Amino acid sequence: CHSECLGNCSQPDDPTKCVACRNFYLDGRCVETCPPPYYHFQDWRCVNFSFCQDLHHKCKNSRRQGCHQYVIHNNKCIPECPSGYTMNSSNLLCTPCLGPCPKVCHLLEGEKTIDSVTSAQELRGCTVINGSLIINIRGGNNLAAELEANLGLIEEISGYLKIRRSYALVSLSFFRKLRLIRGETLEIGNYSFYALDNQNLRQLWDWSKHNLTITQGKLFFHYNPKLCLSEIHKMEEVSGTKGRQERNDIALKTNGDQASCENELLKFSYIRTSFDKILLRWEPYWPPDFRDLLGFMLFYKEAPYQNVTEFDGQDACGSNSWTVVDIDPPLRSNDPKSQNHPGWLMRGLKPWTQYAIFVKTLVTFSDERRTYGAKSDIIYVQTDATNPSVPLDPISVSNSSSQIILKWKPPSDPNGNITHYLVFWERQAEDSELFELDYCLKGLKLPSRTWSPPFESEDSQKHNQSEYEDSAGECCSCPKTDSQILKELEESSFRKTFEDYLHNVVFVPRKT
């Protein structure tokens, strides 16, 4: 048989008469490798580009789960590009990614509803959504962080984005990388972005840091009482949809009607710091009717980097990364020049730590249904340095008659930039024990000054392991946590139920 035959053949030295091919099969003959313009397919066939392209389009058009959109890589027609490569849609070739590779997620039936953290986790790592997304989240724990972890990498949506009755959302900033909504599939009414009845939605994105392009379709905003109209108009300008909307697409009466839409800028007039305090004062603000001013709200939190936005980490279910302080308005003076500047002394802060701070007014709604208010920009203030805590785990070892090696770990709280350490030492008198000992005694162990690591005695271990207080009263049991108490109650309830079950099964009433 021919060298490319495997198993047997019907005619000697003829690659077209093989029972099976050793390498690849091409047009009725066995070959060692697939010549151009053919590609290896499933490690035994040679196919042309049209064959591989037909497989790709067949799966793409069917949208069946589990099928493969075949691509070409290293002269092979394979189910998908290997790690580190992405497909070129024009020629199906796998090309190296520039940075992290995109991950295209194809949605069944063309859309997916995100109504819980669990459903959001199914899209973790996706960068391109081939379909439409509907966000409908009523509640949950730590929602802002969970949504950002699972949806934060999405850069492109081919269909539309719909935010509907998501009472738990305060902001859409968890879509931190969303840059493009194509609108290839539109919501009824030709809408590519749809926001309806979101009672706590206050911000779409921080438009000073976020760009969003909507290729096709219109915007729809109705019944978002805490979303200011200025935020919607800003989205029109940034996304390129200005002029597409009709009169009733953006409701003037049901958007922002319960919001404090600040239209003035508060400026800080005085800032002073110490290692654990920050004193702030800002310019006074009074609405047209000074009785509408209820006070100020001061927001602050630790910020290692200057990239904080107002609604980071917030949701309507209680999660809030900001510390909020309510401040009463100052006494009002008739003389504008003698107006008191409101302020606040922030206490209990960490030394040498940068804080993000902003302040906003708290006002009631005027009778004319106009909203007044003022808010400052987010500023960054760093507390002063102070003395560091003591170095940890000092170790001293003498390696000769004239040297001592000293080692330690950095302090747990540096409280500033540590530039150097101060080492103090003092000579001590020799131990009298060394002169009084009889060095001729056998088995004498000389006193040693070398360091030995501390260890816990058996008594201390027994005390720590004991669940009861000892007789001397030195140790006591740790208080039980809520989960331990709940577990004990469940076990007790189970024992009672099981005992009742045994009584009912074992003891049967005697027939009379």
Rank of each mutant, 00 (worst) to 15 (best):
V104R: 04
V104K: 03
V104P: 03
C105G: 02
H106D: 15
L107F: 13
L108R: 12
L108Y: 14
L108Q: 04
L108A: 13
E109S: 02
E109Q: 15
G110Q: 06
G110V: 03
K112T: 08
K112L: 02
T113N: 04
D115H: 15
S116P: 02
S116A: 05
S116G: 09
T118E: 14
S119H: 12
S119D: 06
E122G: 14
E122L: 14
L123V: 08
L123K: 01
G125R: 02
T127A: 12
V128I: 11
N130W: 02
G131M: 03
G131H: 01
S132T: 11
L133A: 04
L133F: 02
I135M: 03
N136R: 06
G140A: 13
N141F: 08
N141V: 14
N141A: 15
N142D: 12
A145N: 12
E146G: 05
E146A: 11
E148L: 13
E148P: 09
A149R: 11
A149I: 07
N150A: 02
G152V: 03
L153K: 14
E155V: 04
E156Y: 05
I157A: 00
I157Y: 01
G159W: 03
L161Y: 03
I163Y: 04
R164M: 12
S166W: 00
S166F: 14
S166Y: 04
S166Q: 10
S166T: 08
Y167P: 10
A168Y: 10
V170A: 09
S171N: 09
S173R: 10
S173Y: 13
F174V: 08
F175M: 10
R176V: 14
R176Y: 12
R176L: 06
L178K: 02
R179Y: 14
L180D: 11
L180A: 11
L180M: 10
I181F: 00
G183A: 12
G183V: 02
G183R: 05
G183K: 03
E184I: 10
E184D: 14
T185V: 13
T185L: 09
L186N: 05
E187P: 04
I188F: 11
N190I: 15
S192A: 08
F193A: 05
F193C: 03
F193V: 10
F193M: 10
Y194V: 12
Y194N: 15
A195S: 12
A195M: 06
L196I: 14
D197T: 06
N198L: 06
Q199P: 10
N200A: 13
L201R: 02
L201S: 05
L201N: 01
L204Q: 04
W205T: 03
W205S: 03
W205I: 06
K209S: 10
L212M: 12
T213S: 07
T213F: 06
I214Y: 04
T215S: 13
Q216F: 13
Q216H: 09
K218Q: 08
L219G: 12
L219N: 15
L219V: 09
F220K: 13
H222W: 06
H222N: 07
N224P: 02
N224V: 03
P225W: 05
L227A: 06
L227M: 15
L227E: 03
H233Q: 05
H233I: 06
K234P: 01
K234V: 06
M235R: 03
M235P: 02
M235G: 03
E236I: 04
E237H: 14
E237C: 15
E237V: 15
E237D: 15
V238R: 14
S239Q: 08
S239A: 13
T241K: 14
T241V: 08
K242F: 09
G243T: 10
R244E: 06
E246H: 05
R247L: 12
R247W: 11
N248R: 06
D249I: 15
D249N: 07
D249K: 14
A251W: 15
A251L: 12
A251M: 14
L252S: 13
L252P: 14
L252Y: 07
K253E: 13
K253V: 14
N255V: 05
N255L: 07
D257W: 03
D257F: 13
A259L: 12
A259I: 12
C261M: 02
N263S: 11
E264S: 09
L266Y: 01
L266F: 03
L266W: 02
F268P: 06
S269V: 13
I271Q: 14
R272V: 12
T273Y: 08
T273L: 07
S274L: 09
K277M: 11
I278H: 00
L279V: 10
R281S: 11
W282L: 03
W282T: 04
W282E: 00
W282H: 02
E283T: 12
W286S: 02
W286R: 05
W286V: 06
P288K: 04
D289I: 02
D289R: 05
F290I: 06
F290L: 02
R291E: 00
R291V: 03
D292A: 02
D292M: 01
L293A: 00
L294P: 00
L294S: 06
G295Q: 15
G295M: 13
F296T: 00
F296L: 02
M297Y: 00
L298T: 04
F299D: 06
Y300V: 09
Y300M: 12
K301Y: 03
E302H: 14
E302M: 13
A303Y: 14
P304E: 06
P304A: 14
Y305E: 04
Y305P: 11
Q306I: 03
Q306L: 10
N307L: 14
V308N: 01
F311L: 08
F311K: 13
D312P: 13
G313V: 07
Q314H: 14
D315T: 13
C317Q: 11
G318R: 12
S319G: 12
S319Y: 06
S319N: 05
S319Q: 04
S319P: 14
S319F: 11
S319A: 06
N320A: 06
N320L: 12
W322G: 15
W322Q: 10
W322M: 02
T323D: 08
D326N: 07
D326M: 04
D328G: 05
P329Q: 05
S333L: 08
N334Y: 13
N334W: 12
P336R: 09
K337Y: 13
S338F: 10
N340V: 15
P342F: 08
P342V: 13
L345Q: 04
L345F: 14
L345D: 02
L345I: 12
R347T: 09
R347A: 03
R347C: 08
R347V: 05
G348S: 08
L349G: 03
K350M: 08
P351L: 02
P351T: 12
W352S: 14
W352M: 06
T353K: 03
T353C: 07
T353G: 01
A356R: 12
F358P: 00
T361Y: 00
L362G: 01
V363T: 08
F365L: 05
E368S: 10
R369G: 03
R369I: 07
T371K: 02
T371F: 04
T371E: 07
T371D: 14
Y372D: 03
G373K: 03
A374Q: 02
S376P: 02
D377V: 09
Y380T: 13
Y380S: 12
V381Q: 11
T383K: 03
T383V: 05
T383Q: 01
D384V: 15
T386G: 04
P388S: 03
S389H: 04
V390G: 02
P391V: 11
P391M: 02
L392K: 11
L392C: 15
L392D: 07
L392Y: 10
L392T: 03
D393T: 14
P394D: 06
P394K: 07
S396P: 09
V397Y: 15
S400A: 09
S400V: 10
S402I: 13
S402C: 10
S402P: 11
Q403Y: 15
I404C: 04
I405T: 03
L406N: 15
L406F: 15
W408M: 01
K409H: 09
P410R: 14
